[in-house]
């Protein structure tokens, strides 16, 4: 059976390569350094967010509040850098992650303890947090000159010519890879998503798992929030609005099952790469940037359809398999 279904990650990689080749043929300027740097940082942001979303989706949940958490954290830290210009970048990194973690814990508590369906809980917190940014900033924009230099230096910087965001994303991916594949709690996340009922009987702690995944999702969003505000040197109420859908698109493209239990770190990272490349390619293909939202919607539908097709089984396998194969031989 395994040989018949080609490895999903391999297929996705091939598709990405094909897209890149097509774009380069039609618009060679796609390969200029500044664009590659943009793609890498765009991928970095998306990949970090997608890692958190991956954990949530595996447990049959969904986190729509990531983009709001990102914007909130970015705004909060930008304001902080304004009032405390002495803070180093490391402090911002830690604070951003912690802040996102706390906001994520709120989602986790609503889902696991109160028992609100994840879509509703995070739709609610998405709106509430977005509103809180307005309250926090009074609707004002915090722009480059109002932020401290330490705040902007790291996210806007590069290491051997590659944006720091990219390196941070690699570290985050490594952390999630170890967590999900080599820690018991990571395997518990998969077990829980695969069969919550059996997981309960096997002693997998539901509440702790759900708190953890939403906290991780929030932490990833918080970390991104600082990097985003610092790299683009701007913080405003509508920052990253609508990105939650790009994140989910990246996940479903990466083969993460919305019905839980399945999805790999590698697949998620590739899904993020797909979205990052498609988005950056649109202008080079002279496609209106206004179509970006529609493209993401179509990608979600397409990926969900593809997943549904591969997941759907014609029925239970009751007829003996060997008899069918002999039938084919004749």
């Amino acid at each position: 059976m395994k040989a018949m279904t080609p490895n999903r990650e391999a297929v996705l990689s091939l598709i990405i390569v094909a897209i890149v080749v097509i774009v380069i043929v039609r618009a060679p300027e796609f390969l200029i350094a500044s664009n590659i740097s943009n793609i890498l940082s765009g991928w970095g942001f998306l990949a970090i967010l997608v890692m958190g979303q991956l954990c949530v989706l595996v447990t049959r949940g969904i986190d729509l509040s990531q983009a709001s958490v990102l914007a909130f954290t970015g705004m909060f830290l930008a304001l902080l850098s304004q009032s405390m210009p002495g803070l180093p970048a490391a402090a911002f990194l830690v604070l951003a992650t912690l802040m996102g973690l706390c906001l994520g814990l709120v989602n986790g508590a609503l889902v696991s303890i109160v028992g609100i369906p994840p879509i509703i809980a995070t739709l609610g917190t998405m709106t509430i947090i977005r509103g809180l940014i307005f309250v926090l900033s009074d609707g004002a924009w915090i722009s480059s000159h109002e932020m401290s230099d330490a705040f902007k230096a790291f996210p806007a910087g590069a290491f051997i010519g590659v944006p720091q965001v990219f390196w941070v994303a690699l570290v985050v991916i490594a952390v999630f890879w170890v967590l999900l594949n080599y820690r018991r709690i990571g395997r518990d996340i998969y077990a829980f998503g695969s069969n919550p009922h059996a997981a309960r009987n096997a002693g997998v702690p539901r509440i702790r798992i759900e708190l953890l995944v939403y906290a991780l999702s929030g932490a990833a969003a918080g970390l991104c929030g600082y990097l985003w505000a610092g790299r683009f040197a701007i913080a405003y109420t509508q920052a990253a609005e609508g990105r939650e859908f790009a994140i989910i698109a990246a996940c479903v493209i990466g083969g993460i099952s919305i019905t839980g239990g399945r999805g790999s770190v590698l697949g998620a990272a590739l899904g993020a790469l797909f979205i990052a490349i498609v988005e950056s390619a649109l202008p080079y293909l002279r496609i209106s940037p206004f179509l970006q939202t529609a493209v993401i919607g179509a990608v979600i539908l397409f990926a969900v359809a593809a997943n549904a097709r591969s997941e759907r089984r014609p029925g239970r396998q009751i007829l003996p398999r060997h008899k069918q194969t002999t039938g084919e031989v004749k």
Partner: peptide, 14 residues
Amino acid sequence: MFDDLTVAENIFVG
């Protein structure tokens, strides 16, 4: 059981 996990993982879950 956990249909998405391997046999070994099912045996040692938790």
